[in-house]
Amino acid sequence: MMRARYAAEVTLAAGQRFASLGRVSVRNRRLVLLWLRRQALRLADGHGGGVRDESPGDVRPVRFHGTDAPEGLRFWATDHHRQDDAIRTLEAGFPLQFTVLDPAVGLSLTLAGWRTCPADRP
């Protein structure tokens, strides 16, 4: 029996430029959400100069020019309703995507998670 696998990635776009800040492949949707939440909080905290302890799988920091993007990341990562919606989205087999904008410099940062291998159904 094949078990579902999941992937997550944090990407940054500015104009026509695009970069992956980090990616992970894990065995279940809860680990995807845990990784995405950790990255969202690290990126939000890094805006003020304080960065949490870094693990080998963590994304590179981003310097935001306004406070809306870090606050949006923090809100998404800590709001129980948003997290419940996120886990239900992954559970239903749909991709998860959350984007924050830094309009001062035309920057967008996206957190995404998706199922890479469907689970066998009995």
Results as ranks from 00 to 15, higher is better:
Met1Leu: 11
Met1Asn: 09
Met1Cys: 10
Met2Ile: 12
Arg3Ala: 06
Ala4Cys: 02
Arg5His: 10
Arg5Gln: 11
Arg5Lys: 12
Arg5Gly: 04
Ala7Val: 07
Glu9Asp: 09
Glu9Trp: 02
Glu9Asn: 10
Val10Phe: 00
Val10Trp: 00
Val10Ile: 02
Val10Asn: 00
Thr11His: 09
Thr11Asn: 10
Leu12Ile: 07
Leu12Arg: 11
Leu12Gln: 07
Ala13Arg: 15
Gly15Lys: 03
Gln16Tyr: 07
Gln16Thr: 14
Phe18Lys: 14
Leu21Val: 03
Arg23Val: 14
Val24Phe: 05
Ser25Met: 11
Ser25Cys: 11
Arg29Asp: 11
Arg29Lys: 13
Leu31Glu: 15
Leu34Trp: 09
Trp35Phe: 10
Arg37Ala: 06
Ala40Arg: 05
Ala40Asn: 06
Leu41Pro: 07
Leu43Pro: 02
Ala44Arg: 01
Ala44Leu: 00
Ala44His: 00
His47Gly: 08
His47Phe: 13
Gly49Ser: 04
Gly49Thr: 06
Gly49Phe: 03
Gly49Pro: 07
Gly50Asp: 14
Val51Arg: 15
Asp53Glu: 14
Glu54Ile: 14
Ser55Glu: 14
Ser55Cys: 11
Gly57Pro: 14
Asp58Phe: 04
Val59Gly: 05
Val59Thr: 12
Pro61Lys: 12
Val62Phe: 10
Gly66Arg: 05
Gly66His: 03
Gly66Ile: 01
Thr67Leu: 15
Asp68Thr: 13
Ala69Gly: 10
Ala69Asp: 01
Ala69Glu: 02
Pro70Lys: 08
Pro70Val: 08
Pro70Asp: 04
Glu71Cys: 00
Glu71Gln: 02
Glu71Met: 00
Leu73Glu: 00
Arg74Cys: 00
Phe75Thr: 00
Trp76Ile: 01
Trp76His: 02
Ala77Asn: 06
Asp79Trp: 02
Asp79Ser: 08
Asp79Met: 03
Arg82Glu: 07
Gln83Tyr: 07
Gln83Asn: 07
Ile87Gly: 11
Ile87Tyr: 08
Arg88Asp: 14
Arg88Met: 12
Thr89Met: 09
Leu90Met: 08
Glu91Ser: 14
Glu91Ile: 05
Glu91Tyr: 13
Ala92Leu: 10
Gly93Val: 09
Phe94His: 13
Pro95Val: 05
Pro95Gly: 06
Pro95Arg: 04
Leu96His: 02
Phe98Ala: 05
Leu101Arg: 03
Asp102Val: 01
Pro103Trp: 01
Pro103Phe: 01
Ala104His: 10
Ala104Cys: 05
Ser108Gln: 11
Ser108Tyr: 03
Leu111Val: 03
Ala112Gly: 12
Gly113Asn: 07
Trp114Asp: 13
Ala119Val: 08
Arg121His: 12
